[in-house]
Design a protein around this nucleic acid. Structure first.
Lengths: 372, 372
DNA sequence: TTGTAAGCGTTATCAA
DNA sequence: TTGATAACGCTTACAA
């Protein structure tokens, strides 16, 4: 390229060019030229540094606006002392799920208020995908990481922390590493569900839960056992089934529970997949409004007023805000090394089956659907 | 800082240091020092440039691995000729919705295969938020933009295009600007719904639609009118209601339709909010299995085998892949300026109410729920 | 095949 | 209050 690097410019720099005539994004040098000052002064203005005459400041801002100037954050971050990129990484299991997308939305809103951007990735529950995403985010020099962890070992994140990238786990703790974590109160959630059903006169309350190897499932299963102990004597061990992986597992298990004598009059489901299978089974037996069901996890069905289905929901805004809050706290005070473990209460949303025609007690989330 | 910038290093550089002992991410200079070569050679290896001895290559790769080196993409992008950042921006209305999050997932997978990252933002349907997000993405120098457009004027994007950032609209065209766009075939979707109901013996098919000012709603309303013209004479104009904004509007409108004589025996709903209101009304009248309903947009209810509810769904994978495909095509051939308008067919998923106990014809999307 | 020097757009240093 | 100059981590140009 020739010494005069104006070759790719449409208008000569000496005249004030109309907006957007550059083939490439304008730089502070372009702004400086238009404002008739040095690029350092432009930098001062754009970074709200002191010691700039108001008149000069206005001239620079005008020039920047006229050119549609936007700071190149890449160039900014490599030069600045703290190397900060004003971005954080978030790894979820599957962004296409309701939990992950709502969590992401909350985190993004939190970050955007602080002029940070969120890079998101889906691990699909696979550790190698998680590590690949962390590596990708690391290339982008994210200032911090929020991770819904997958797999048996997250000690690899220790290196990132030592380099100044704080890590906060969400929904379950990382393994083989000590770090901040924000989880739902899964155990209490199931206890609330059982208590709710008992308060409505149910004495035979069945439970369908997931695998003990899954952190949240284990906590929920423990919650059911705890509730059983609380009401000792009035529960039947034959009414508990755990280890379910698919909705079809729950479908079959529900049919088996219903075939028992006496059969449970109410069922608590440990997650949405299980709820789906259980509802199919109840439908098949024509028991949809006869057997009470409390599901776990947020469920669109409940918001549409599905009769007879109550749900224990995650408080996703609280989870997201706590996690993001912890991360930004670490970003501001990198010295503080206490590992916090925050447990967020769940919410029981009752949907009594006795009033199927009524409006749902909680207004449906109008914005949770695509309405284009 | 002193001339020796090793001050913040824990181990001296002359000894091979164990992994992760730097307080900051390692640079190519760190790798070069460990491999005993120059940083240029390291760059060559990392960029797969020719003319490197295999032995040297191996030494560099070993050193990089030992240090946990990751290329700083920020530094890379500001220097490289094309200024590419290997990232694209995606603006949706609300990431917390099923449509947006599934679309985002598809786009991310497409981009990740090409080693690109996706920055996502939610406009909430507000033009000023959309512009703020575009500005933020512009600071990050995204290589291209995918936009679900909001508001009356998107000509501001012209400047970005002229600077080499291609734009592809999704779900509806941008206004006051010519650009590529990928949309669902909303009109045909409603026609399919009407045809489906007619084929099942319905002759009084009602319709509840959204506001004409909304692009997709207008197309769907037009689809119903077209279907009406196709079957001239057998339709009752009193069975169409449009302009609905909330589910409560649809709730009331449905009750009004049902109060007519003769009442419609089937209803087509223009979007999910409307479907929710309609189902509430049918529930109240005890007509859930008596009046057939076809909803528009993907709907969790349908996947759980809600009896009597069929849905017209977006083909979100096709939409996302087409949009991302168009964008990457533009990135590879910036000269090609034809504006493509791609219409993606919708899918009708029938859920006959006559077989409420049966399994859904399409397997439920097991992965579409949070199952933690 | 390898290394030196320059430069990207920005921020930091320091002199004017 | 301002600006010349260096530096960030990397890629490009070019010389060895």
């Amino acid at each position: 390229m020739l010494p005069t690097d104006d070759a790719d410019r449409v208008a000569p720099a000496r005249h004030a060019p109309p907006t957007g005539v550059l083939k490439r994004p304008p730089t502070i040098k372009d702004v400086a030229a238009l404002a008739g000052t040095s690029h350092k002064t432009v930098s001062r203005v754009l970074n709200d540094e002191p010691n700039v005459r108001p008149e000069m400041r206005a001239r620079v801002l005008d020039a920047a606006a006229a050119l549609g100037y936007r700071r190149n954050t890449a160039a900014s971050s490599i030069r600045r002392r703290d190397q900060r990129t004003a971005s954080i990484g978030l790894i979820v299991e599957d962004l296409a799920t309701a939990f992950a997308s709502r969590l992401t939305r909350v985190v993004q809103d939190y970050a955007l208020k602080r002029h940070h951007l969120v890079l998101v990735g889906s691990s699909d529950g696979m550790l190698d995908r998680e590590r690949a995403l962390v590596a990708e985010f690391s290339s982008r020099r994210v200032d911090g990481l929020l991770v819904v962890p997958s797999g048996p070992d997250h000690s690899y994140l220790e290196a990132h922390r030592q380099r100044g990238t704080p890590v906060v786990f969400i929904d379950r703790p990382g393994r083989r590493i000590k770090a901040d974590v924000v989880v739902s109160d899964n155990e209490q959630g199931v206890r609330d569900a059982v208590r709710h059903l008992a308060a409505h006169g149910h004495s035979r309350i069945g439970y369908l839960g997931g695998c003990e190897s899954v952190y949240t499932a284990a906590r929920r299963n423990a919650g059911y056992r705890a509730a059983t102990r609380e009401h000792a004597g009035s529960w039947d061990q034959r009414h508990i089934r755990t280890g379910m992986r698919r909705s079809s597992d729950a479908y079959r298990a529900t049919l088996a529970l219903l075939d028992q004598t006496p059969a449970p009059t109410a069922l608590v489901c440990g997650n949405n997949l299980i709820t789906a299978g259980t509802l199919r089974a109840l439908q098949q037996r024509g028991l949809v409004n006869r057997v009470a069901v409390v599901g776990f996890d947020d469920n669109e069905l409940a918001h549409l007023g599905q009769p007879g289905l109550s749900v224990v929901t995650h408080d996703i805004p609280a989870i997201g805000n706590h996690a993001a809050g912890l991360l930004f706290q670490r970003l501001q005070q990198p010295t503080d090394c206490r590992n916090e473990h925050i447990t967020v209460p769940t919410t029981l949303i009752p949907r009594p089956g006795g009033d199927p025609g009524g409006l749902p007690r909680c207004a449906p989330r109008e914005r949770s659907y695509y309405t284009g």
